[in-house]
Nucleic acid binder design. Structure first.
Length: 211
DNA sequence: AGAAGTCCCCATTTTACGTCA
DNA sequence: TGTGACGTAAAATGGGGACTT
């Protein structure tokens, strides 16, 4: 290997070296000059495939064999394709990461909502049992009063009225459901609903006024 | 229809050259 | 400072498919 100690990127060096190689081995030059590369790159930017006539003209202009020009364009297309593949991969990877992140957020939200729903079902069941017990006990008392001749009580009066007292700090579950039934229910944030339902305030729960 | 020529793509090899111990 | 091993990019090769004549 010749080491001339000069800038290997300079045209002078390359030309000189190629000349040496040509004279020594009587072969065509192996490395193209910077000027040749520049011309080839410029044309490649506008057309990645060369027409035969243009190829011959370009080879003549650059002092190369037409076959060399054709090979250069083939290799250049391969290199460009490889780079493009890398760019596409990076774009797809970024999109995937973004979607994956969103999926994780939605998944966690879904788990949280499922848990909250389960708790609500448990509370409803519990309260319904309590209501049922109280109603039975009230009915038996009224039967006793009626037997003592205090008058008949109409069904309407005896039926339990579901009255909601004013409750500023919490939203009733029916309100939540009404809200969810609106057209824009998708806009409701789960956190908002949970906050409005005052799940965390055990001293003043909406289900305390259920009966 | 099929043989010959040409071009291109693709995988692979060869070569040039920089870096580092 | 010289040198050989190694890695990498570029140039070249060869096989095979598609197309034209």
């Amino acid at each position: 290997m010749l080491d001339l100690g000069s800038d290997p990127d300079s045209d002078c060096f390359t030309t000189f070296f190629n000349t040496l190689s040509n004279n020594k081995d009587n072969k065509i030059q192996r490395r193209f000059t910077n000027q040749q590369i520049k011309s080839l790159e410029t044309i490649f930017q506008s057309e990645s495939k060369l027409e035969p006539r243009k190829k011959l003209q370009l080879a003549k202009d650059l002092g190369l064999q037409p076959r060399q020009v054709a090979i250069w364009f083939q290799n250049k297309r391969a290199r460009w394709k490889s780079k493009q593949l890398e760019r596409d991969y990076n774009i797809l990877r970024a999109n995937y990461d973004s979607l994956s992140s969103k999926f994780d957020i939605l998944n966690r939200e879904n788990q949280s909502l499922t848990l909250q729903l389960q708790k609500l079902h448990e509370v409803i069941d519990k309260k319904e049992k309590i209501c049922s017990t109280r109603e039975n006990s009230k009915d038996s008392t009224e039967e006793k009063v009626s037997e003592k001749g205090l008058g008949n009580v109409s069904d309407a009066d005896s039926s339990m009225k579901l009255e909601y007292p004013e409750h500023n700090s919490s939203m009733l579950v029916v309100d939540i459901l009404d809200k969810a039934n609106e057209d824009n229910w998708e806009d409701l944030e789960s956190d908002q609903l949970l906050n409005e339902a005052a799940i965390g305030d055990t001293s003043n729960q909406w289900w305390d006024v259920w009966c």
